[in-house]
Amino acid sequence: MPKKILIIEDDPAIVVSLEFLMLQQGYDVQVTTNAEEGEKTIRQQMPDLILLDINLPQRSGFELCRQLRADSNFDQTRIVLLTAKGREVDYQKGIAFGADEYIIKPFSTRDLVQTVHDLLSTTRNLI
């Protein structure tokens, strides 16, 4: 059973490569372009990992991340924040909201694939 990955990203340009890369790694990939739709998909599909953009229309990735972490159903769901917000304060915010990784654009796709692989092969420590 392949691991499920959900990409929530409103920039179609990066979705092309992200989706392709994750599919090539043998994951089951789904894509949504906003947080509302993303939340619905998460509740229905229960993905193992979410590649979540922060700058989304209407509701930010920070907010969705925070909400998911407040819900114990998603304790084991890995959240990787993908963002162009490159400052220390944004990184701190991402970690405070419960992201497992905070990846700043531009990033190496090879490193991203490795990070996703590492995260999915371990269990989330809740303490």
């Binding site: 920039d11 990066i14 992200l18 890369l21």
Partner: peptide, 12 residues
């Protein structure tokens, strides 16, 4: 942020 996004798209 916009520049970062563009560079990220090109690089990936």
């Amino acid at each position: 942020e916009q520049r970062r996004a563009s560079i990220a798209n090109i690089r990936s």
